[in-house]
Write a protein that binds this DNA or RNA. Structure first.
Lengths: 235, 235
DNA sequence: ATTGATTTGTTCGTATGTATC
DNA sequence: GGATACATACGAACAAATCAA
């Protein structure tokens, strides 16, 4: 229930339903018919998604993303929603879609068994017609036995959630500077060896099983990745 | 109080006091003499720092950072602790330490007023003798009126916390690929125009005031930035 | 400058649900 | 099926910071 409240609040923030702060906790309690603890758990989630600054005695302030000229990708927001970039949804073009066996490298990358079967989906993605990234995604068939070609064109996560009732829980993310190999460079139509930002992600179900892992190469100019941390104060 | 518990648990994790999982909630309740809610709040914090995977009915599993060959920097952990890199503490060499007035660019970068006074501290940092990064940090003197030269050599955050009792709360972080300007390239002894990972951070106090902002250029080879997100499941 | 009301932060207790073992 | 362990939700009380009269 607090998940739904959080989701609704996030929706309201993104569609600018609130001026600059959230309503007070008491107001939220009334509008969602929930206890204070539940409201606060929901707000914790929204906060963890990097959308709020909280000030005791004052309120919850919405963090307005600055940086006009540049595209900002909020990494604190859930992995399944990274497709929601500022300038609108990403359009994708599937370049590889098949089943393979995990080799040593993939097994290590995705924490899966060697030779286990994987769906492989590589997609070029575009933002407002401009090439944005190349996403190399893998899904163990032990968890996702069937993936229709249609779903691959759109949101694979949405399909999986709907069809298999698999709820994602956490994602480990690794960002690094990568020199593009020939294959990736060709697909992205840039020079081999060019340095780009890449993001490797591993998605775990609530029970700790990997249901997806991927590597994404970003080529969109001046892209900025945003995230949000909280510090532990003591003494 | 749950902050302290969280801090202690994190310390235990990093010093490998727990095999692969945390003790159960009941066990933690006993050892810290706290209620279940308090323990869970502490665990929420540890979790947010990217150190745990939680499995209902089973337990809290410690995420073992893989990747042996590469240096992994955990960005989910608080900003003041990013200096705690795997291979030991960073040693820093101060290259600039003075007071300046915020120009347009800095004011925008740090969300501070134009012409407001700032401490400026630039440091080259080394990991095991090898150049790691260049950190360009700024502290508004309105918040931090005095910064002794000694503190700048070590942990500035520790000094500030001790001296001014300022507790940090949240940090906004922005990662991007940057082409080095001449000044930075010279300090880092690399070619001008070279692309490196850079991290811009803005640190807010609990009351929403910026007490520090910085930009860090990483040059350590094959550095990997790690972070951790949780997804909102609904329906 | 003080007071009082508002608003968020922390902690406890309790009950019930759900996944794992 | 039973025990264990984590997840969700409500209620209540007090602390601490902010804000307005």
């Amino acid at each position: 229930m607090y998940h739904d409240i959080a989701k609704d609040i996030i929706k309201n923030i993104l569609s600018k339903k609130y001026e600059d702060k959230l309503p007070t906790e008491t107001a939220l309690m009334k509008s969602y018919h929930a206890s204070r603890n539940t409201i606060r758990k929901a707000i914790d989630l929204v906060f963890a998604h990097g959308l709020l600054r909280r000030v005791q005695g004052s309120g919850y302030y919405i963090i307005e993303r600055p940086v006009k000229s540049k595209k900002v990708l909020n990494m604190s927001i859930g992995f399944d929603q990274t497709a929601m970039v500022d300038g609108g949804p990403l359009k994708s073009k599937v370049v590889v879609f098949d089943k393979i066996k995990a080799n040593q490298e993939l097994a290590k990358q995705g924490r899966v068994d060697l030779n286990s079967e994987l769906y492989r989906i590589w997609r070029l993605r575009y933002l407002q017609g401009k090439l944005y990234d190349l996403e190399e995604a893998y899904y163990p068939t032990s968890v996702v036995p069937y993936l229709p070609a249609e779903s691959v064109e759109h949101s694979i996560f949405a399909f999986i959630r709907k069809e298999y009732h698999l709820k994602g829980s956490t994602t480990e993310n690794y960002i690094q500077l990568t020199k593009l190999a020939k294959k990736e460079a060709n697909l992205l139509k840039v020079n081999e060896g060019k340095s780009v930002l890449s993001l490797a992600g591993i998605n775990y179900l609530k029970n700790g099983i990997v249901f997806n892992f991927s590597r994404t190469y970003f080529v969109y100019p001046d892209l900025v990745l945003y995230y949000h941390t909280m510090n532990i104060d003591s003494d």
